[in-house]
Amino acid sequence: MKKLIICSLFTTVSLFLLIACGKKKDDAQEEKVYRVEGTITVDGRERTFLLNLPPTYYTGSGFSLVIAMHGGGGSATQFETSSRLTQKANTENFIVVYPEGVKSTGPLGARTWNAGTCCDFAVTNNINDVKFIAQLIDKLVADYKINPKKVYATGHSNGGMMSYRLACELSNKIAAIAPNASTMVVTQPCNPVRAVPILHMHSVLDEHVPYNGGTGNGISGVYAPPVDSVLDVWSSKNACATKAQVVVNNSSYQFTQWVNCSNSTLIHYYLTKDGGHAWPGGLPGSLNGDTPSKAINANDLLWNFFKQYQLP
């Protein structure tokens, strides 16, 4: 009897250890990843991006994707830090990806986007950044739980310019855009296949990309068309029946909108009277960067704007 009890006890302990070991193995296999530093190859060139998944990713589905593009000379990690967009994405449960422009071969290795006439290395070498973003969207939609109808683009400076180019050439993949401290500098006719909702943010103190047009001190002598004229062009493309209306004009900012547009599309324009060439509500983009506006918060505005829209 004593021998039988000992054997039974040994068997029970062995089973417990086996189950415990098996459980640890399963837990390791189910390790959840929320941050991805990825690459894809486009036209024989390796392109890089940083992806952030929200805390609810593994229990949810049908997530929105925001494509956030850094300014000229910036990077994915730099723009993530200065914009604080990841914190907003984690709170509001959307996916954000920070793609990177190509790095120049010069001593600074500055990354830029080919938005048309700007900027630098990407333009000089005719980098097809539209193709890069199109393939990146396809990859992320295939690999992650993203609703393909809820893909949006935003960006600062050169990245904002790239947002406008995407609105012109990828309106079948991008539901809305929110450029900051930028303008539209496309060199080919802008022919979106549908009306594109636009939220533009700028500061009257921006000397790099002047809101009223001209050659700023940060884009290598490239002429920047006035923001008003750019948005007037888009109001025509979006078939807006109502001209620009100033809704708010106080000591902090001016808010202008174009309404009664095709497919209930809106165009919003926030012009702050503080800040400079920086992400409103964020951090300076560099040690010598301009102080961001405190009059508005770019992340709050863009997300409230984006979530109103999806592709048909």
Results as ranks from 00 to 15, higher is better:
Met1Tyr: 13
Lys3Ala: 07
Lys3Cys: 01
Ser8Phe: 02
Val13Tyr: 08
Phe16Glu: 02
Leu17Gly: 10
Glu37Arg: 15
Gly38Glu: 05
Thr41Val: 12
Asp43Pro: 09
Thr48Met: 14
Thr48Trp: 07
Asn52Leu: 07
Ser61Asp: 14
Phe63Tyr: 14
Ser64Ile: 08
Ser75Asp: 05
Ser75Asn: 04
Thr77Cys: 04
Ser82His: 04
Ser83Ile: 03
Leu85Ile: 07
Ala89Gln: 02
Pro99Asp: 02
Gly101Gln: 02
Ser104Thr: 05
Thr105Gln: 09
Thr105Leu: 14
Trp113Val: 09
Phe121Asp: 14
Asn128Val: 04
Leu136Met: 13
Val141Pro: 06
Lys145His: 06
Lys145Ser: 10
Ile146Glu: 06
Asn147Arg: 06
Asn147Gly: 11
Pro148Asn: 05
Lys149Thr: 13
Lys149Asp: 15
Lys150Ala: 08
Lys150Met: 07
Gly159Leu: 01
Gly160Leu: 01
Met161Pro: 01
Arg165Trp: 00
Arg165Val: 03
Ala167Thr: 11
Leu170Gln: 13
Ser171Glu: 04
Ser171Ile: 06
Asn180Lys: 01
Met184His: 05
Pro192Ser: 12
His200Lys: 03
His202Glu: 08
Ser203Tyr: 07
Asp206Phe: 01
Asp206Cys: 08
Glu207His: 09
Gly213Met: 11
Gly216Asn: 10
Ile219Thr: 11
Gly221Met: 03
Ala224Met: 12
Ala224Trp: 02
Ala224Val: 10
Val227Gly: 09
Asp228Thr: 13
Leu231Tyr: 08
Val233His: 04
Ser235Lys: 15
Ala244Val: 15
Gln245Pro: 00
Val246Asn: 07
Asn249Glu: 14
Gln254Ala: 06
Cys261Ala: 04
Asn263Asp: 15
His268Val: 00
Asp274Thr: 11
Asp274Cys: 08
His277Cys: 05
Leu283Arg: 05
Gly285Ser: 10
Leu287Met: 09
Asn288Ser: 08
Ala295Trp: 02
Asn299Met: 07
